[in-house]
Amino acid sequence: MENSDSEIIIQITNMHKWFGDFHVLKDINLAVHKGERIVVCGPSGSGKSTMIRCINRLEEHERGRIVVDDIEITNDMKNIDQIRAEVGMVFQQFNLFPHMTILENLTLGPKWVQKHSANESEDLAMKYLKRVRIVEQAHKYPGQLSGGQQQRAAIARSLCMHPKVLLFDEPTSALDPEMVKEVLDVMISLAEEGMTMIVVTHEMGFAKQVADRVIFMDEGQIIEENIPHIFFNDPHHERTRLFLKQILP
């Protein structure tokens, strides 16, 4: 793998998680290097969302270690705040704040978390709105935008925090087909700029085009992990093969 000797930014070792009695993540091991693009796929309920949500402590892991940029995730709120400042997340349902304009959505983090001035925050927000090509929507409310525009705004909102890692949880699954491309285009351009990304998605075209590694999960385990070329053309595991057969035309 091309990045294997560069710095590791996320290191997950022997991580387990339970929901009550349900063992949802089993012995997860994963190292992500700076600038690496990772695509995670797998059947519904396999634990993909749960795994990436552990990385910014939206879910709590019960065993093992997660280290992000040399900070271990523990119950210490200070560590968690620090990690959340470095890890951005984009959700399937966008989760913009409906009572604020797009601009206010974007300036929220810079203003309240990073304590930038109102002007600085606004400049930053406008810069990233340009970056995702929706400057003209700045003063509208999320409800007035199309799904694709909302998701791009949500990406811009994460970018305003200058994250070192971006997590995507099925960013295009809630979109009408004609809007998928505009969001994927933004993600591709981010990847080209060297953003470290972990993307849960079933957009295999995206995986082939930008992923450095594709990870296949099933029943709470990482079953297979490979570069796209091998993953799609010659997967090692039977289960991966079955899954690919189901989702690829």
């Binding site: 910014n56 997340m89 349902q93 989760n95 704040f97 929220l108 983090g109 994460s158 925090m161």
Partner: peptide, 11 residues
């Protein structure tokens, strides 16, 4: 999702 997005932002 509103809580999660707010947490993820670090608020």
């Amino acid at each position: 999702g509103q809580y999660e997005a707010a947490s993820a932002l670090g608020l």
